[in-house]
Design a binder for these strands. Structure first.
Lengths: 239, 239
DNA sequence: CTAATAAAGTTGTCTGACAACTTCTTCGAC
DNA sequence: GTCGAAGAAGTTGTCAGACAACTTTATTAG
Protein backbone atom coordinates (compact mmCIF):
# COMPACT_ATOMS: atom_id res chain seq x y z
CA UNK A 1 0.00 0.00 0.00
CA UNK A 2 3.02 2.27 0.14
CA UNK A 3 3.17 2.57 -3.63
CA UNK A 4 4.74 5.25 -5.70
CA UNK A 5 4.23 8.83 -4.66
CA UNK A 6 1.34 10.25 -6.62
CA UNK A 7 2.93 13.68 -6.57
CA UNK A 8 6.39 15.01 -7.06
CA UNK A 9 5.85 17.48 -4.31
CA UNK A 10 7.48 16.32 -1.11
CA UNK A 11 5.66 18.81 1.08
CA UNK A 12 2.32 17.60 -0.13
CA UNK A 13 3.32 14.07 0.61
CA UNK A 14 4.17 14.88 4.20
CA UNK A 15 1.00 16.91 4.60
CA UNK A 16 -1.08 14.05 3.25
CA UNK A 17 0.59 11.58 5.53
CA UNK A 18 0.31 13.64 8.70
CA UNK A 19 -3.16 14.85 7.80
CA UNK A 20 -4.31 11.28 7.39
CA UNK A 21 -2.87 10.36 10.77
CA UNK A 22 -4.81 13.16 12.37
CA UNK A 23 -8.09 12.89 10.52
CA UNK A 24 -7.93 9.12 10.73
CA UNK A 25 -7.77 9.34 14.47
CA UNK A 26 -4.37 7.74 14.87
CA UNK A 27 -3.37 11.01 16.45
CA UNK A 28 -6.07 12.27 18.74
CA UNK A 29 -6.64 15.87 19.84
CA UNK A 30 -3.83 17.09 22.02
CA UNK A 31 -1.51 14.33 20.93
CA UNK A 32 2.00 15.36 20.25
CA UNK A 33 3.40 14.93 16.78
CA UNK A 34 6.82 13.45 16.15
CA UNK A 35 9.55 16.03 16.33
CA UNK A 36 10.81 17.61 13.17
CA UNK A 37 13.95 15.60 13.50
CA UNK A 38 12.00 12.36 13.71
CA UNK A 39 9.97 13.32 10.69
CA UNK A 40 12.98 14.20 8.60
CA UNK A 41 14.40 10.81 9.49
CA UNK A 42 11.27 8.73 9.02
CA UNK A 43 10.13 10.39 5.81
CA UNK A 44 13.57 10.94 4.36
CA UNK A 45 13.11 14.59 3.61
CA UNK A 46 14.85 17.72 4.71
CA UNK A 47 13.76 19.77 7.64
CA UNK A 48 12.67 22.51 5.26
CA UNK A 49 10.06 20.19 3.78
CA UNK A 50 8.86 19.09 7.17
CA UNK A 51 8.54 22.64 8.36
CA UNK A 52 6.56 23.71 5.31
CA UNK A 53 4.26 20.78 5.82
CA UNK A 54 3.80 21.74 9.45
CA UNK A 55 3.08 25.31 8.37
CA UNK A 56 0.41 24.04 5.99
CA UNK A 57 -1.25 21.89 8.63
CA UNK A 58 -1.17 24.78 11.04
CA UNK A 59 -2.83 26.97 8.43
CA UNK A 60 -5.49 24.32 8.08
CA UNK A 61 -6.05 24.47 11.81
CA UNK A 62 -5.17 20.84 12.27
CA UNK A 63 -2.22 21.41 14.55
CA UNK A 64 -0.68 24.01 16.78
CA UNK A 65 3.00 24.42 17.48
CA UNK A 66 4.66 25.52 20.66
CA UNK A 67 8.21 26.70 20.45
CA UNK A 68 10.56 24.64 22.51
CA UNK A 69 7.88 22.07 23.18
CA UNK A 70 6.54 20.52 20.02
CA UNK A 71 3.61 20.31 17.64
CA UNK A 72 0.24 19.10 18.86
CA UNK A 73 -3.01 18.05 17.26
CA UNK A 74 -5.46 20.91 17.62
CA UNK A 75 -8.77 20.62 19.36
CA UNK A 76 -11.29 19.72 16.65
CA UNK A 77 -13.86 22.04 18.16
CA UNK A 78 -11.59 24.96 17.53
CA UNK A 79 -11.72 24.78 13.75
CA UNK A 80 -14.59 22.82 12.36
CA UNK A 81 -15.71 25.10 9.60
CA UNK A 82 -13.30 27.02 7.52
CA UNK A 83 -14.76 29.06 4.80
CA UNK A 84 -12.37 31.24 2.94
CA UNK A 85 -13.56 34.70 3.80
CA UNK A 86 -15.39 36.16 0.85
CA UNK A 87 -12.71 37.86 -1.12
CA UNK A 88 -12.93 41.41 -2.32
CA UNK A 89 -16.48 41.11 -1.08
CA UNK A 90 -18.39 41.37 -4.27
CA UNK A 91 -21.93 42.16 -3.28
CA UNK A 92 -23.28 39.42 -5.48
CA UNK A 93 -21.10 36.92 -3.75
CA UNK A 94 -22.37 38.02 -0.39
CA UNK A 95 -25.92 37.58 -1.54
CA UNK A 96 -25.07 34.08 -2.66
CA UNK A 97 -23.64 33.26 0.72
CA UNK A 98 -26.67 34.72 2.43
CA UNK A 99 -28.84 32.45 0.39
CA UNK A 100 -26.84 29.54 1.66
CA UNK A 101 -27.30 30.84 5.15
CA UNK A 102 -31.02 30.97 4.56
CA UNK A 103 -31.01 27.32 3.60
CA UNK A 104 -29.24 26.36 6.77
CA UNK A 105 -31.29 28.52 9.08
CA UNK A 106 -34.61 27.39 7.72
CA UNK A 107 -33.76 23.80 8.46
CA UNK A 108 -32.31 24.82 11.81
CA UNK A 109 -35.65 26.28 12.80
CA UNK A 110 -37.41 23.07 11.89
CA UNK A 111 -34.93 20.93 13.77
CA UNK A 112 -35.14 23.20 16.76
CA UNK A 113 -38.91 22.75 16.74
CA UNK A 114 -38.39 19.01 16.83
CA UNK A 115 -35.64 18.77 19.37
CA UNK A 116 -35.22 21.89 21.46
CA UNK A 117 -35.04 21.32 25.19
CA UNK A 118 -36.92 23.55 27.59
CA UNK A 119 -33.68 25.23 28.48
CA UNK A 120 -32.85 25.94 24.86
CA UNK A 121 -36.28 27.39 24.20
CA UNK A 122 -35.82 29.59 27.22
CA UNK A 123 -32.50 30.76 25.78
CA UNK A 124 -34.19 31.65 22.51
CA UNK A 125 -36.84 33.60 24.36
CA UNK A 126 -34.18 35.41 26.32
CA UNK A 127 -32.42 36.37 23.10
CA UNK A 128 -35.69 37.64 21.70
CA UNK A 129 -36.20 39.82 24.77
CA UNK A 130 -32.64 41.03 24.29
CA UNK A 131 -33.58 42.38 20.88
CA UNK A 132 -36.63 44.07 22.36
CA UNK A 133 -34.52 45.75 24.97
CA UNK A 134 -31.98 46.95 22.43
CA UNK A 135 -34.71 48.31 20.19
CA UNK A 136 -36.31 50.21 23.03
CA UNK A 137 -32.90 51.69 23.69
CA UNK A 138 -32.94 52.98 20.14
CA UNK A 139 -30.24 50.61 19.10
CA UNK A 140 -29.97 48.68 15.85
CA UNK A 141 -29.81 45.39 17.76
CA UNK A 142 -27.41 43.86 15.30
CA UNK A 143 -25.58 41.77 17.85
CA UNK A 144 -28.79 40.78 19.59
CA UNK A 145 -30.38 39.70 16.36
CA UNK A 146 -27.41 37.53 15.61
CA UNK A 147 -27.52 36.03 19.09
CA UNK A 148 -31.15 35.14 18.54
CA UNK A 149 -30.38 33.24 15.38
CA UNK A 150 -27.48 31.52 17.08
CA UNK A 151 -29.72 30.42 19.93
CA UNK A 152 -31.99 28.71 17.42
CA UNK A 153 -29.03 27.03 15.77
CA UNK A 154 -27.95 25.78 19.18
CA UNK A 155 -31.37 24.33 19.77
CA UNK A 156 -30.98 21.95 16.86
CA UNK A 157 -28.72 19.82 19.02
CA UNK A 158 -26.48 19.60 15.97
CA UNK A 159 -23.25 21.42 16.61
CA UNK A 160 -22.57 21.96 12.94
CA UNK A 161 -25.38 24.46 12.68
CA UNK A 162 -24.16 26.97 15.25
CA UNK A 163 -20.65 26.62 13.92
CA UNK A 164 -21.74 27.36 10.43
CA UNK A 165 -23.70 30.36 11.57
CA UNK A 166 -20.99 31.62 13.86
CA UNK A 167 -18.57 31.72 11.03
CA UNK A 168 -20.89 33.42 8.62
CA UNK A 169 -21.92 35.87 11.27
CA UNK A 170 -18.38 36.98 11.73
CA UNK A 171 -17.37 37.20 8.13
CA UNK A 172 -20.25 37.91 5.87
CA UNK A 173 -22.55 40.03 7.97
CA UNK A 174 -20.10 42.14 9.83
CA UNK A 175 -21.49 45.61 9.70
CA UNK A 176 -25.21 45.51 9.41
CA UNK A 177 -27.96 43.01 9.70
CA UNK A 178 -31.20 44.48 10.84
CA UNK A 179 -30.99 48.19 10.26
CA UNK A 180 -30.89 49.02 6.60
CA UNK A 181 -32.23 51.38 4.03
CA UNK A 182 -34.90 52.75 6.29
CA UNK A 183 -34.75 56.45 6.83
CA UNK A 184 -37.57 58.15 8.63
CA UNK A 185 -38.04 57.24 12.30
CA UNK A 186 -41.62 56.20 11.69
CA UNK A 187 -40.72 53.89 8.85
CA UNK A 188 -37.92 52.54 10.86
CA UNK A 189 -40.12 51.84 13.81
CA UNK A 190 -42.67 49.99 11.72
CA UNK A 191 -39.95 48.04 10.08
CA UNK A 192 -38.36 46.93 13.31
CA UNK A 193 -41.69 45.99 14.77
CA UNK A 194 -42.44 43.79 11.84
CA UNK A 195 -39.09 42.10 12.22
CA UNK A 196 -39.85 41.39 15.82
CA UNK A 197 -43.24 40.06 14.82
CA UNK A 198 -41.51 37.67 12.43
CA UNK A 199 -39.14 36.63 15.17
CA UNK A 200 -42.07 36.00 17.46
CA UNK A 201 -43.69 33.75 14.92
CA UNK A 202 -40.51 31.70 14.62
CA UNK A 203 -40.32 31.27 18.37
CA UNK A 204 -43.96 30.30 18.49
CA UNK A 205 -43.39 27.60 15.91
CA UNK A 206 -40.46 26.20 17.80
CA UNK A 207 -42.21 26.34 21.14
CA UNK A 208 -45.23 24.57 19.70
CA UNK A 209 -42.93 21.86 18.36
CA UNK A 210 -44.30 22.54 14.91
CA UNK A 211 -41.41 22.10 12.45
CA UNK A 212 -43.44 23.05 9.42
CA UNK A 213 -44.53 26.31 10.93
CA UNK A 214 -41.06 27.10 12.24
CA UNK A 215 -39.63 26.42 8.84
CA UNK A 216 -42.19 28.58 7.13
CA UNK A 217 -41.71 31.45 9.52
CA UNK A 218 -37.95 31.41 9.27
CA UNK A 219 -38.10 31.13 5.53
CA UNK A 220 -40.31 34.14 5.18
CA UNK A 221 -38.24 36.09 7.62
CA UNK A 222 -34.97 35.49 5.84
CA UNK A 223 -36.44 35.79 2.38
CA UNK A 224 -37.66 39.25 3.21
CA UNK A 225 -34.32 40.14 4.67
CA UNK A 226 -32.57 38.87 1.56
CA UNK A 227 -34.96 40.78 -0.63
CA UNK A 228 -34.10 43.98 1.17
CA UNK A 229 -30.43 43.36 0.50
CA UNK A 230 -31.13 42.59 -3.08
CA UNK A 231 -33.02 45.78 -3.73
CA UNK A 232 -30.30 47.66 -1.97
CA UNK A 233 -27.79 46.01 -4.24
CA UNK A 234 -29.73 47.02 -7.32
CA UNK A 235 -29.96 50.60 -6.19
CA UNK A 236 -26.42 51.37 -5.16
CA UNK A 237 -23.23 49.44 -4.89
CA UNK A 238 -21.54 51.40 -2.20
CA UNK A 239 -19.10 50.14 0.38
CA UNK B 1 0.16 52.12 10.24
CA UNK B 2 3.27 49.98 10.24
CA UNK B 3 3.32 49.78 14.00
CA UNK B 4 4.86 47.16 16.19
CA UNK B 5 4.36 43.57 15.21
CA UNK B 6 1.43 42.18 17.13
CA UNK B 7 2.99 38.77 17.13
CA UNK B 8 6.47 37.43 17.57
CA UNK B 9 5.87 34.95 14.82
CA UNK B 10 7.41 36.14 11.60
CA UNK B 11 5.63 33.60 9.44
CA UNK B 12 2.28 34.72 10.72
CA UNK B 13 3.17 38.28 9.96
CA UNK B 14 3.96 37.49 6.35
CA UNK B 15 0.83 35.38 6.03
CA UNK B 16 -1.29 38.18 7.42
CA UNK B 17 0.25 40.71 5.12
CA UNK B 18 -0.04 38.65 1.95
CA UNK B 19 -3.45 37.33 2.92
CA UNK B 20 -4.70 40.87 3.36
CA UNK B 21 -3.35 41.85 -0.04
CA UNK B 22 -5.26 39.00 -1.62
CA UNK B 23 -8.52 39.17 0.27
CA UNK B 24 -8.50 42.92 0.07
CA UNK B 25 -8.39 42.69 -3.68
CA UNK B 26 -5.06 44.43 -4.10
CA UNK B 27 -3.94 41.21 -5.73
CA UNK B 28 -6.65 39.87 -7.99
CA UNK B 29 -7.12 36.28 -9.08
CA UNK B 30 -4.32 35.15 -11.32
CA UNK B 31 -2.04 37.95 -10.24
CA UNK B 32 1.51 37.01 -9.63
CA UNK B 33 2.95 37.44 -6.18
CA UNK B 34 6.34 39.00 -5.64
CA UNK B 35 9.13 36.49 -5.87
CA UNK B 36 10.47 34.94 -2.73
CA UNK B 37 13.57 37.04 -3.11
CA UNK B 38 11.53 40.22 -3.30
CA UNK B 39 9.58 39.20 -0.25
CA UNK B 40 12.66 38.41 1.78
CA UNK B 41 13.97 41.85 0.89
CA UNK B 42 10.79 43.83 1.42
CA UNK B 43 9.75 42.14 4.62
CA UNK B 44 13.21 41.68 6.01
CA UNK B 45 12.88 38.01 6.76
CA UNK B 46 14.70 34.93 5.58
CA UNK B 47 13.59 32.87 2.68
CA UNK B 48 12.65 30.11 5.12
CA UNK B 49 10.01 32.34 6.65
CA UNK B 50 8.70 33.43 3.28
CA UNK B 51 8.44 29.86 2.11
CA UNK B 52 6.56 28.73 5.19
CA UNK B 53 4.16 31.60 4.73
CA UNK B 54 3.65 30.64 1.12
CA UNK B 55 3.04 27.05 2.20
CA UNK B 56 0.39 28.25 4.63
CA UNK B 57 -1.38 30.36 2.02
CA UNK B 58 -1.28 27.48 -0.38
CA UNK B 59 -2.85 25.25 2.25
CA UNK B 60 -5.57 27.85 2.65
CA UNK B 61 -6.17 27.69 -1.07
CA UNK B 62 -5.40 31.34 -1.54
CA UNK B 63 -2.47 30.84 -3.86
CA UNK B 64 -0.93 28.27 -6.12
CA UNK B 65 2.75 27.96 -6.90
CA UNK B 66 4.38 26.90 -10.11
CA UNK B 67 7.95 25.79 -9.99
CA UNK B 68 10.17 27.90 -12.11
CA UNK B 69 7.44 30.42 -12.69
CA UNK B 70 6.16 31.95 -9.50
CA UNK B 71 3.27 32.09 -7.06
CA UNK B 72 -0.14 33.23 -8.21
CA UNK B 73 -3.37 34.20 -6.55
CA UNK B 74 -5.75 31.29 -6.87
CA UNK B 75 -9.07 31.52 -8.59
CA UNK B 76 -11.59 32.22 -5.81
CA UNK B 77 -13.97 29.78 -7.43
CA UNK B 78 -11.56 26.99 -6.76
CA UNK B 79 -11.68 27.08 -2.99
CA UNK B 80 -14.43 29.10 -1.41
CA UNK B 81 -15.57 26.60 1.14
CA UNK B 82 -13.15 24.92 3.37
CA UNK B 83 -14.57 22.71 6.01
CA UNK B 84 -12.05 20.86 8.04
CA UNK B 85 -12.79 17.31 7.04
CA UNK B 86 -14.53 15.51 9.85
CA UNK B 87 -11.77 14.18 11.96
CA UNK B 88 -11.53 10.69 13.32
CA UNK B 89 -14.83 10.36 11.54
CA UNK B 90 -17.05 9.92 14.51
CA UNK B 91 -20.22 8.60 13.01
CA UNK B 92 -22.28 11.06 14.97
CA UNK B 93 -20.31 13.90 13.52
CA UNK B 94 -20.90 12.63 10.02
CA UNK B 95 -24.60 12.48 10.68
CA UNK B 96 -24.49 16.07 11.86
CA UNK B 97 -22.77 17.16 8.70
CA UNK B 98 -25.24 15.22 6.62
CA UNK B 99 -28.02 17.06 8.31
CA UNK B 100 -26.40 20.28 7.27
CA UNK B 101 -26.16 18.95 3.78
CA UNK B 102 -29.84 18.17 3.86
CA UNK B 103 -30.60 21.75 4.76
CA UNK B 104 -28.60 23.04 1.85
CA UNK B 105 -29.91 20.59 -0.69
CA UNK B 106 -33.53 21.09 0.19
CA UNK B 107 -33.24 24.78 -0.48
CA UNK B 108 -31.18 24.07 -3.58
CA UNK B 109 -34.04 22.04 -4.99
CA UNK B 110 -36.45 24.87 -4.38
CA UNK B 111 -34.16 27.45 -5.94
CA UNK B 112 -33.56 25.19 -8.89
CA UNK B 113 -37.30 24.98 -9.40
CA UNK B 114 -37.45 28.75 -9.46
CA UNK B 115 -34.45 29.51 -11.59
CA UNK B 116 -33.21 26.54 -13.58
CA UNK B 117 -32.61 27.17 -17.25
CA UNK B 118 -33.73 24.67 -19.83
CA UNK B 119 -30.15 23.60 -20.26
CA UNK B 120 -29.71 23.00 -16.56
CA UNK B 121 -32.87 20.96 -16.35
CA UNK B 122 -31.62 18.91 -19.26
CA UNK B 123 -28.38 18.34 -17.36
CA UNK B 124 -30.33 17.12 -14.34
CA UNK B 125 -32.30 14.74 -16.52
CA UNK B 126 -29.11 13.46 -18.07
CA UNK B 127 -27.69 12.80 -14.62
CA UNK B 128 -30.83 10.93 -13.68
CA UNK B 129 -30.52 8.75 -16.73
CA UNK B 130 -26.91 8.19 -15.76
CA UNK B 131 -28.05 6.65 -12.49
CA UNK B 132 -30.50 4.46 -14.34
CA UNK B 133 -27.80 3.21 -16.62
CA UNK B 134 -25.47 2.45 -13.74
CA UNK B 135 -28.20 0.63 -11.87
CA UNK B 136 -29.02 -1.52 -14.84
CA UNK B 137 -25.34 -2.36 -15.02
CA UNK B 138 -25.64 -3.68 -11.50
CA UNK B 139 -23.56 -0.87 -10.13
CA UNK B 140 -24.09 1.06 -6.91
CA UNK B 141 -24.26 4.31 -8.83
CA UNK B 142 -22.54 6.25 -6.09
CA UNK B 143 -20.77 8.67 -8.40
CA UNK B 144 -23.84 9.07 -10.58
CA UNK B 145 -26.03 9.82 -7.60
CA UNK B 146 -23.62 12.48 -6.50
CA UNK B 147 -23.52 13.97 -9.99
CA UNK B 148 -27.30 14.17 -9.94
CA UNK B 149 -27.32 16.15 -6.73
CA UNK B 150 -24.56 18.39 -8.05
CA UNK B 151 -26.56 19.10 -11.18
CA UNK B 152 -29.40 20.34 -9.03
CA UNK B 153 -27.05 22.51 -7.03
CA UNK B 154 -25.76 23.98 -10.26
CA UNK B 155 -29.26 24.79 -11.33
CA UNK B 156 -29.70 27.18 -8.42
CA UNK B 157 -27.61 29.70 -10.28
CA UNK B 158 -25.88 30.30 -6.97
CA UNK B 159 -22.34 29.07 -7.14
CA UNK B 160 -22.07 28.62 -3.41
CA UNK B 161 -24.39 25.65 -3.49
CA UNK B 162 -22.41 23.43 -5.86
CA UNK B 163 -19.25 24.41 -4.05
CA UNK B 164 -20.64 23.43 -0.74
CA UNK B 165 -21.85 20.15 -2.09
CA UNK B 166 -18.68 19.41 -3.98
CA UNK B 167 -16.70 19.73 -0.83
CA UNK B 168 -18.97 17.58 1.25
CA UNK B 169 -19.18 15.04 -1.48
CA UNK B 170 -15.48 14.56 -1.46
CA UNK B 171 -14.95 14.45 2.23
CA UNK B 172 -17.94 13.20 4.06
CA UNK B 173 -19.46 10.70 1.71
CA UNK B 174 -16.44 9.07 0.27
CA UNK B 175 -17.19 5.39 0.31
CA UNK B 176 -20.86 4.84 0.07
CA UNK B 177 -23.93 6.86 -0.56
CA UNK B 178 -26.66 4.88 -2.13
CA UNK B 179 -25.94 1.27 -1.50
CA UNK B 180 -26.14 0.45 2.15
CA UNK B 181 -27.38 -2.16 4.54
CA UNK B 182 -29.41 -3.95 1.95
CA UNK B 183 -28.52 -7.54 1.49
CA UNK B 184 -30.73 -9.72 -0.63
CA UNK B 185 -30.84 -8.87 -4.34
CA UNK B 186 -34.60 -8.50 -4.25
CA UNK B 187 -34.53 -6.09 -1.34
CA UNK B 188 -31.78 -4.23 -2.98
CA UNK B 189 -33.64 -3.91 -6.21
CA UNK B 190 -36.76 -2.58 -4.53
CA UNK B 191 -34.67 -0.17 -2.55
CA UNK B 192 -32.89 1.23 -5.56
CA UNK B 193 -36.10 1.56 -7.49
CA UNK B 194 -37.64 3.57 -4.70
CA UNK B 195 -34.63 5.85 -4.67
CA UNK B 196 -35.01 6.44 -8.36
CA UNK B 197 -38.69 7.14 -7.84
CA UNK B 198 -37.75 9.76 -5.27
CA UNK B 199 -35.27 11.24 -7.69
CA UNK B 200 -37.92 11.38 -10.35
CA UNK B 201 -40.24 13.26 -8.08
CA UNK B 202 -37.56 15.84 -7.39
CA UNK B 203 -36.93 16.35 -11.08
CA UNK B 204 -40.64 16.65 -11.71
CA UNK B 205 -40.93 19.37 -9.10
CA UNK B 206 -38.05 21.31 -10.60
CA UNK B 207 -39.27 20.91 -14.16
CA UNK B 208 -42.73 22.08 -13.16
CA UNK B 209 -41.16 25.15 -11.56
CA UNK B 210 -42.84 24.19 -8.33
CA UNK B 211 -40.44 25.12 -5.52
CA UNK B 212 -42.65 23.79 -2.77
CA UNK B 213 -42.95 20.39 -4.37
CA UNK B 214 -39.23 20.26 -5.19
CA UNK B 215 -38.44 21.16 -1.62
CA UNK B 216 -40.78 18.54 -0.25
CA UNK B 217 -39.47 15.83 -2.52
CA UNK B 218 -35.85 16.55 -1.75
CA UNK B 219 -36.56 16.76 1.94
CA UNK B 220 -38.23 13.40 2.02
CA UNK B 221 -35.52 11.86 -0.09
CA UNK B 222 -32.69 13.04 2.11
CA UNK B 223 -34.55 12.43 5.34
CA UNK B 224 -35.00 8.81 4.40
CA UNK B 225 -31.38 8.55 3.43
CA UNK B 226 -30.35 10.08 6.71
CA UNK B 227 -32.64 7.74 8.58
CA UNK B 228 -30.99 4.75 7.00
CA UNK B 229 -27.62 6.01 8.12
CA UNK B 230 -28.94 6.62 11.57
CA UNK B 231 -30.32 3.14 12.00
CA UNK B 232 -27.08 1.78 10.67
CA UNK B 233 -25.24 3.84 13.24
CA UNK B 234 -27.36 2.45 16.03
CA UNK B 235 -26.78 -1.10 14.95
CA UNK B 236 -23.06 -1.26 14.39
CA UNK B 237 -20.20 1.17 14.51
CA UNK B 238 -17.84 -0.50 12.15
CA UNK B 239 -15.27 1.08 9.94
C1' DC C 1 11.51 17.65 50.18
C1' DT C 2 11.94 22.01 47.85
C1' DA C 3 13.80 25.31 44.93
C1' DA C 4 17.34 27.03 42.12
C1' DT C 5 20.35 25.69 38.44
C1' DA C 6 22.06 23.16 34.67
C1' DA C 7 21.38 20.27 30.74
C1' DA C 8 19.01 18.38 27.01
C1' DG C 9 15.52 18.75 23.66
C1' DT C 10 12.52 21.38 20.38
C1' DT C 11 10.81 24.93 17.48
C1' DG C 12 12.02 29.53 15.12
C1' DT C 13 15.04 31.84 12.05
C1' DC C 14 19.07 32.68 9.17
C1' DT C 15 22.42 31.60 5.47
C1' DG C 16 24.23 29.35 1.47
C1' DA C 17 23.94 26.11 -2.04
C1' DC C 18 22.24 23.30 -5.84
C1' DA C 19 18.52 21.00 -8.68
C1' DA C 20 14.42 21.36 -11.59
C1' DC C 21 11.67 23.96 -14.15
C1' DT C 22 9.87 28.13 -16.75
C1' DT C 23 10.31 32.18 -19.34
C1' DC C 24 12.68 35.33 -22.06
C1' DT C 25 16.45 36.34 -25.25
C1' DT C 26 19.37 35.54 -28.84
C1' DC C 27 20.86 33.80 -32.99
C1' DG C 28 20.92 31.02 -37.01
C1' DA C 29 18.46 28.75 -40.90
C1' DC C 30 15.18 29.41 -44.28
C1' DG D 1 11.42 39.02 -42.03
C1' DT D 2 9.81 34.71 -39.74
C1' DC D 3 10.25 30.76 -37.35
C1' DG D 4 12.50 27.52 -34.43
C1' DA D 5 16.07 25.97 -31.50
C1' DA D 6 19.57 26.75 -28.27
C1' DG D 7 21.10 29.31 -24.51
C1' DA D 8 20.71 32.46 -20.52
C1' DA D 9 18.38 34.28 -16.76
C1' DG D 10 15.00 33.92 -13.33
C1' DT D 11 12.12 31.24 -9.94
C1' DT D 12 10.52 27.63 -7.05
C1' DG D 13 11.82 23.03 -4.73
C1' DT D 14 14.98 20.75 -1.78
C1' DC D 15 19.00 20.01 1.02
C1' DA D 16 22.42 20.98 4.74
C1' DG D 17 24.25 23.27 8.73
C1' DA D 18 24.11 26.62 12.24
C1' DC D 19 22.48 29.43 16.03
C1' DA D 20 18.73 31.69 18.90
C1' DA D 21 14.68 31.30 21.88
C1' DC D 22 12.07 28.64 24.56
C1' DT D 23 10.37 24.43 27.22
C1' DT D 24 10.96 20.38 29.70
C1' DT D 25 13.56 17.35 32.40
C1' DA D 26 17.35 16.19 35.33
C1' DT D 27 20.58 17.57 38.80
C1' DT D 28 22.10 19.55 42.82
C1' DA D 29 22.42 22.60 46.85
C1' DG D 30 19.89 24.03 50.76
Amino acid sequence: MTGKPRTNNLVERVVTRLGADIRGGRLGPGARLPTEQDLTASMRVSRTVVREAVAALRADGLIVTRRGSGAYVADPAASPFRIAAPRAAALGEILDVMELRLAVEVEAAALAAERATRKQIAAIRTALRGIDRALRGGDGAVAEDFAFHCAIAEATGNRQFPRFLAFLGNHVIPRQSVRLSVDTPAERRTYLERIQHEHGRIVAGISAEDPAEARRAMHEHLTRSLERYRSLARRSVDD
